[in-house]
Write a protein that binds this DNA or RNA. Structure first.
Length: 202
DNA sequence: CGGCTGATTCGCT
DNA sequence: GCGAATCAGCCGC
């Protein structure tokens, strides 16, 4: 299949210094996978930002390094996929410069292409294919095998430009499932598109 | 080494 | 609304 390289987000998009800017700008962009010869695309409608600096919710908070978090210290533009609750694969985009462990969790998509493939991967008749971080990874075929993939290389996974989202359409609120992070659980670092029915519920 | 906890989701009570 | 599924990381013995 032909990929329009002009439409693929460059590394410079991810390597900006403020992870919150990158998170907000990812709303409206299009996440694409090309896995098992199937292409799936979906508009990003919900994200969360995590920062290695002063954020207890981040796996790499306070400079913590493990085999799992090492990927977050790389230069922006690569995928961080990890296993949650031993079952679900969660997809993040690494941001900022090398040595700074910032990342953006993709929490929900609005399907654009390959819905039948997504349905088949879920192996269920659930109509909401991508309204949560675990289920969207399953629908899109994302597993830890894609960990450390370079998004700008547009090999198996990449992100394309989409319709711009105005500031009025964005909502900033608290992140989900990070109660363990103390004060940082209240940071308004979750962003979603107002009124979009694919945003995960709470 | 055992036990606990999670950036979650699904199915049953 | 609660618990299971089930793995990486961490802490205590």
């Amino acid at each position: 299949m032909k990929k329009d390289s002009l439409n693929i987000l460059p590394n410079g998009f991810y390597r900006r210094p403020n992870v919150l800017d990158v998170a907000r700008d990812l709303l409206g962009k299009v996440l694409c996978t090309h896995i098992e010869n199937q292409v799936c695309k979906g508009t990003i409608v919900e994200v969360e930002a995590y920062s290695g600096h002063n954020d207890q919710a981040c796996h790499a908070s306070n400079g913590k390094r493990t085999k799992r978090t090492e990927i977050m210290y790389r230069a922006g533009g690569c995928a961080y996929v990890y296993l949650c609750y031993g079952i679900h694969h969660l997809f993040n985009v690494v941001t900022n410069e090398e040595g700074i462990a910032d990342a953006v969790l993709i929490r929900a998509l609005e399907p654009l292409q390959g819905q039948q493939t997504m349905q088949d991967r879920l192996n269920s008749s659930n109509r909401m294919l991508t309204n949560g971080p675990g289920i969207l990874a399953k629908s899109m075929g994302i597993t830890t095998a894609l960990n450390s993939s370079e998004l700008s290389a547009a090999n198996c996974i990449w992100i394309e430009n989409g319709e711009p989202i105005s500031e009025e359409q964005q909502v900033a609120t608290t992140r989900i499932g990070v109660d363990y992070a103390g004060e940082d659980a209240y940071l308004p670092w979750r962003f979603y598109i107002k009124g979009n029915s694919w945003v995960s519920k709470k």
